[in-house]
Amino acid sequence: MADRLSIPKTYKLAIGGAFPRSESGRTYEVVTPKGAFLANAALASRKDARDAVVAARAAFSGWAGATAYNRGQVLYRIAEVLEGRRAQFADEIRASEGATALQAAAQVDAAIDLWVWYAGWTDKFTQVAGSGNPVAGPYFNLSVPEPTGVVAIVAPQEPKGASLLGLVATVAPALVAGNTVVVVADRAHPLSAISLAEVLATSDVPGGVVNVLTGSPAEIAPWLAAHADVNALDLSGAGALDWVDLEIAAADTLKRIVSPEPGVPSRSLQRILAFTETKTVWHTKSLL
């Protein structure tokens, strides 16, 4: 029997729970480290970024308003579904990043475990970072961290590739508190980002909570940095861009900013809290 002719996958954007092509109609070639053609990815435009922000904003109140338990279950569900598709992700990473089978599998496993780690935080970070405040007066006074809003992320752009793990290491912590995300994926290795979006779409993550753009961070990031409806900017993967200019643009609407750092950010509570706002509620207290 002759070899079956395979069906190549079309990699598109993920915006508002749908998988559209770039409104610009543009694509770019994704190649192996040796230059062989892998796929055409959508080359997102500023208008795609705009649409992604609209979708993220629309999804915010639902995701932020979900119970912490529910958000934890959804994030854990991502790990479960990802676990079932380890092979696909490992294949994509091997092809796109030139990783060995072992390295690729290790990256997928690390990404899955990272989802599990962050999933467990959804109903705990509030307790750890919040406080009951003993004010000098007849008041009940409580501080709790709440999601900042729409977070725009430039995912790590590792030359040697960490496309799945880098994405998860930036997107997952932002989701914990209830933020919604617009993420610009690793430009050179965007395949696992889009495949992850497909996982999210089948993991009870509401549409619009995570919006994935593939293409040029240098082109898209300035639009996100200056967008008035973006509340926070994670520049973890923007070290090679004019990131100071991005921070200056973000200052116009006083966005919360995470500055670039080399490599894949390590997991931390601080990353969750970077996209939270402490809300303090006072209420009078009396028996009379």
Partner: peptide, 13 residues
């Protein structure tokens, strides 16, 4: 009587 506005004790005091 039950429809009267409530009193917040802390504010009143």
């Amino acid at each position: 009587l039950e429809g009267l506005s409530g009193v917040d004790a802390v504010g009143l005091e």
